[in-house]
Simulated assay, not measured.
Amino acid sequence: MRLVLAVAAAAVICTTALAQTNTNSGSGIENPAISITPKGGPENTGTIAPGANSFTEGQARSRIEAQGFANVSDLRKDGQGIWHGKAQRNGQDVEVMLDYRGNVASK
């Protein structure tokens, strides 16, 4: 009886391990011209993702500035909940984005 239970338990463990999938399936923005600066946090993957964004314009500006950007302007939220705007970093003009998780990207 113990042998049967041990074999059954091993089968369940092996099946569970084989059923796992790669959750990094390439979703999000994949463009080498975009530099991603993740905010941090357990659910934060570092990619810009659409979602219900509750950041106000002022909060979006503050989060972008906290990532080292200056002169943040022309902020607007698109239909996917991603804030877009203009800013400067290291003396260069860049486009910035902020998603609902607080991730900031520039290009």
Rank of each mutant, 00 (worst) to 15 (best):
T37G: 02
G46F: 03
P38N: 09
S62Q: 13
S62V: 05
I48N: 14
S62F: 05
N44C: 13
G51R: 00
A10Q: 10
T47D: 14
T15R: 11
F55P: 02
S54T: 01
A52Y: 09
Q20A: 13
T56P: 00
F55G: 04
Q59K: 04
T21M: 05
T37M: 04
I34N: 12
S25T: 10
A33R: 11
S62Y: 06
T37I: 06
I48F: 12
Q20R: 15
V12S: 09
A11M: 02
N24I: 08
E57D: 09
G58R: 03
A19D: 03
N22R: 03
N22E: 09
E57T: 13
N44P: 12
A9T: 03
T16M: 08
P42N: 12
G46L: 01
A8H: 11
P42V: 12
I34Q: 13
N53S: 04
E43R: 13
A52I: 06
E57A: 11
I48P: 15
I29Y: 13
S54V: 02
S62W: 12
A60H: 01
S54N: 01
A8K: 13
N22W: 07
S35G: 05
G51F: 01
T21N: 07
R61P: 04
A11V: 06
A60M: 01
N44S: 10
T45W: 08
G28F: 06
T56R: 00
T16P: 07
G28W: 07
I29V: 15
S62H: 08
P50H: 01
R63T: 05
N53I: 01
K39N: 14
S27A: 08
T21I: 07
T47P: 11
E57C: 10
C14P: 07
T15E: 14
T23S: 15
F55M: 02
P38A: 07
P32M: 04
A52C: 06
N31M: 10
T16Y: 06
P38Y: 05
G51H: 00
A10T: 10
T45R: 13
E30V: 08
G28A: 08
F55E: 03
I29L: 15
I48M: 14
G41S: 01
A8Y: 11
A9F: 05
I48E: 13
G40R: 11
P50N: 00
S35M: 08
I34P: 07
P42F: 12
A8L: 15
Q59A: 03
S54D: 01
A10R: 09
P32K: 10
A60G: 01
S27M: 14
I48W: 15
G46W: 02
A11S: 05
A9S: 03
T23V: 13
Q20N: 12
S25M: 09
A19C: 12
G58L: 02
P42T: 07
S62E: 15
S27L: 15
G28C: 10
S27W: 15
A19E: 04
A10N: 10
S35I: 07
P38V: 06
S54M: 01
A10D: 07
A19V: 09
G58F: 03
T56I: 00
G41F: 00
P42G: 11
L18H: 02
G46R: 04
T56C: 01
A19H: 06
E43D: 12
S35C: 10
G28H: 09
T21K: 05
A49C: 06
V12K: 07
G26M: 02
R63W: 04
P38E: 10
G58A: 03
T21V: 05
A8D: 14
N22M: 03
V12D: 08
A49T: 14
L18C: 06
A19N: 03
